[in-house]
Design a protein around this nucleic acid. Sequence first.
DNA 1: TTAAAACTCGATACAACGTAAGTAGTTTGG
DNA 2: CCAAACTACTTACGTTGTATCGAGTTTTAA
Lengths: 253, 253
Amino acid sequence: MTAQHTGGGTDARRALELLWGAEPRPRRGPKRGLSVRQVVSRAIELADEHGLASLTMRRVAESFGVTAMSLYSYVPSKDELVDLMVDRVAEPSAEPGPPGEDWRAGLERHARTSRQIYHRHPWVLEVSMGRPPLGPNVLAGLEARLSTVGGLGLSFEDQLAVINLVDDYVHGAATSLTGVSLLERRTGLSAAQWWEQYDPLLEEFVDFERYPALTAMWEALGPTEQRTDFEFGLQRVLDGVSRFVESSREKGT
Amino acid sequence: MTAQHTGGGTDARRALELLWGAEPRPRRGPKRGLSVRQVVSRAIELADEHGLASLTMRRVAESFGVTAMSLYSYVPSKDELVDLMVDRVAEPSAEPGPPGEDWRAGLERHARTSRQIYHRHPWVLEVSMGRPPLGPNVLAGLEARLSTVGGLGLSFEDQLAVINLVDDYVHGAATSLTGVSLLERRTGLSAAQWWEQYDPLLEEFVDFERYPALTAMWEALGPTEQRTDFEFGLQRVLDGVSRFVESSREKGT
DNA sequence: TTAAAACTCGATACAACGTAAGTAGTTTGG
DNA sequence: CCAAACTACTTACGTTGTATCGAGTTTTAA
């Protein structure tokens, strides 16, 4: 397991060539049986279905009927492959919003788009983006966010802070939301089944007197659904941003 | 790499016994050279220093001068070990707040405590908590949060939604914050060095005309520090919660 | 008191991982 | 037309979690 992060490649030029699709056609050897695009697409499919932990070079290769080492003529390492996967699935974040869209609607749209991406490709959440792949879609996504908050009269620092705030919330909420269903597939146990296992045992080990609020809640709600409400949180976050924008306007004028 | 998540163990009773420290003393065989506490502590130290990916049963064992398989008499699997580690580092979240603390101060304190935990133990962020280990500290942390928002007249659902919102933001922000420094150690390249590699190459591949806002920002700020401001985001989130609490009070009265 | 059961720990082994190295065969530029 | 460049295959290495087995140790039951 080498790649749990992006930007791990050693050859920056090669990485950018791959990200921006600069594949010079005239190559010497035998015709290639595959393309980088194909490899990346298949890798995404496999990761979507079985998770990042199960995404191995061997499996990607096998799905094409070639050996693992063959892939290394398309992609220098698994790290680079993950970079390419991340930029590929970021495609929707580059889509333009409707004309006349105000900042709040724009941030909402970006947030929902990200949530969609995380929902469809949960493995993205496992990839640390400390150094995002500088591909067309990742850059376009950032550009779109910046232009959404660009007209508010905020400093660049504040613009970035607002964008990061929303992105951080979405990332965190998506992690919670996805974690549950991910575990159901990984362990083969539904959340309900899991609770059935633990619920009776808990009383044996836990002194519930020490957790009155928790006990009250479990009795009222049942421990079944502890779902994070994405929209609720998003609206609170945007309310907070709204207040900041307003007070920032007052000062600025 | 089996354990990137908690709650993966197969024997629920054994898991709870370990979490709640129920180690029945009269055991038959030779005296044990170690204790579960020791093993968990050492594993945390190693994960703090070298990351979760480098935390292997062999390394933990070697640090005690025993073989990898010896550990399996203390802990049934690496999954369970990670569960124990998570509950252990959650200890600070059980600490009580000052008397008379209002809800906002309480949520702030919980958020900062979590951020501290993530800062000191970045590997926790890599562990999916879809099914948190039901140990004393995790439970106490949830109890503390619930009692913080318990006096606001919110429904249990709304209480949970508020708690999850703050936790989700903190998790997301911590992931951003930690990601950068984590990569510096993992790749041996500082963020500045990394940018130096990519910056000149970018102009070769990227048509900056297509990213005007991004270009303007990079020219103004330089791409060096794209840090997430934890406190900024936290205050916006709490502002949002505040508005919700107020409007909820109006309705409720 | 003693035999058996229960336990710890070490040695060995296996399948799966990313990928280095080497080879055979194919295409193309000089 | 041949040598350089390229693809894809075979092998191989070191690492991972952990199953299995065996030898030795302590406790319990008779």
